[in-house]
Write a protein that binds this DNA or RNA. Sequence first.
DNA 1: TTTAGCACTCTTTGTTTCAGATTGCTAATT
DNA 2: AATTAGCAATCTGAAACAAAGAGTGCTAAA
Lengths: 336, 336
Amino acid sequence: MLEDRKKKVLQAIVEEYINTAEPVSSSSLTNNYDLNYSSATIRNEMADLEKAGYIEKTHTSSGRIPSEKGYRYYVDELLKDDNISVEEIKYISEKLETKVNEIEELTKITTTTISEITHYTTLAIGPSTENLLIEEIKFVLLGPRMLMAIILTNTGMVKETIIKFEEDISEKQVETINYMFNQKLRGQPLDIIDGPLEEYLINEMKYSVKVIKPIIQQIKKVISEDRQLYLEGANKSFELPEFNSLSVAKNFVNIIDEKELMTDILNSGFAKDINVYIGDENEKKELKDFSIITFKHKVGNKDLGTIGIIGPKRMDYSKVISVMKYINKKLKDKGI
Amino acid sequence: MLEDRKKKVLQAIVEEYINTAEPVSSSSLTNNYDLNYSSATIRNEMADLEKAGYIEKTHTSSGRIPSEKGYRYYVDELLKDDNISVEEIKYISEKLETKVNEIEELTKITTTTISEITHYTTLAIGPSTENLLIEEIKFVLLGPRMLMAIILTNTGMVKETIIKFEEDISEKQVETINYMFNQKLRGQPLDIIDGPLEEYLINEMKYSVKVIKPIIQQIKKVISEDRQLYLEGANKSFELPEFNSLSVAKNFVNIIDEKELMTDILNSGFAKDINVYIGDENEKKELKDFSIITFKHKVGNKDLGTIGIIGPKRMDYSKVISVMKYINKKLKDKGI
DNA sequence: TTTAGCACTCTTTGTTTCAGATTGCTAATT
DNA sequence: AATTAGCAATCTGAAACAAAGAGTGCTAAA
């Protein structure tokens, strides 16, 4: 456990470094941050904090920067999570009050809003389809050889897909299909279609394999599809001094370009509402120089997907977390 | 008009520079590129080409690089458009033969394929909705207060959207809506809804403004929506030596992050099948250090949208154009 | 316990130097 | 007349060095 003054010094170093991106010297803290001591005193505290692993030097005679342990301590113990202005609250409220008919729209709006307020690159994926139950499937004939399947889930999610056939199908056939699919699939988990049911359906309804097979295939495809990925404000990261390093910039572009990686990141570990991964804490080694903050956003108990912010380890954790908390709260009330 | 040998020298300089990204010296061309002359002779030709504006020096004693005029001459007069290997042809064919039910899928596949083959960043937008005619609108009740509208166009495009209501609506009502909308909209251009028709419908059907209004609003929204934008291989650009310059890299990220700009780029000027814009030839000044090659891809006469490749002015025009031509040809035959 | 003072270390910036690459031009060669 | 050899001139880029500045650690004084 750190003494009070050490905490203050650490907090000052972290916040100063987040603001300036320059190693923090002892003299820059005197008479700031409520620290009315000489630089020598601060220096002594810094030496202790360094020994304890909370801060580091970039070279023998440099100022200090927070270590990952330092950031972690700051996030867990020192950070204020109400770092959000009246204007920001107003802006967010307005954005989130937009009327939307589809979940995806809300995800997009939220992602953009977060990126605008925090000035960090923001990513999002749509809600997981795992554990969803099929409430109903509707089939609509769009043409003699074109059918649309619309799947409604228990959470109100709607997925639709177009199926094309080699031969004409009749309204009559569609009715039968409608009946049989709903008979079998209602209340079942979404991915049941990709199991033994497939064979069953094909056998049961063999009167027209040519019709059934494309339907099953297409439904399988649409439910196993990658979830939609959103990315906002990639260029915002490039304004940060960290991105003057070519290797950092390149690394970053590689990360955000790798959709699988991003999906993995957004899907991993959700111990809490808001999850912070600092540098090496990230599961993916590509992210060792970055920090990620993720949260699942929900309306009521409807999962809307996961939003993540990626930035340098020198990220404004306080601002980001404050914004996320506010959005979480705001979404809880919203109807959809 | 350039003499034959000057053409050869220019071509050699352009291709060598495209390959190496280094200014091309006179000696590096002797005994290469079918140029069996001494470096002094080449040097004389180079001096002439420079006077004529086709090549430039980076400093007094440097080798030469092509000017924009030089690239333009190369693209118009010297470039070979069959620069594509058997393996590449095979790869592209396989990719494009994937069976797809929706246009968007094909656009995505094509975009990815181009990026993989050319190693350049590739963008695409979906087909324009201008000039489309409504063939039919279908309404499907998804819940007591949830309706889906499915719009079929004359080109086989399908757009669907969900509409939510404040009050319950009946199957009976949906039938009426179906009838009236189709009565009025069939054969009309897609954007008619956003004109006088809106008032007409609301007046005509005032028996249930509360139902009609959200429908019209939502249909207006979905047809005026930004077209879907695809981006593939942003990181590929970062492998190019040009991107070791921080300002170039930053510029690039700003461009690809600005969706409106990208849409504009893909929508501008289509004089030919394949359009090449070199540096300052681009309408947008942000692109003055880049080259863009765009083409509209179609299946039969169905517009699938526009695909564009963005890269440095030192782009492998020959490869890119060859690939596009092949894809164009390949898609012509494909059914969808 | 705190602070003043100072030697020491490392970075950053600017300068100079030098080797190497390439050109343009002139004179010689084909 | 066209081509080429040869060479001075020019510029880049790397390396080596110097000087200034920022910041620390430590000692001794307050």
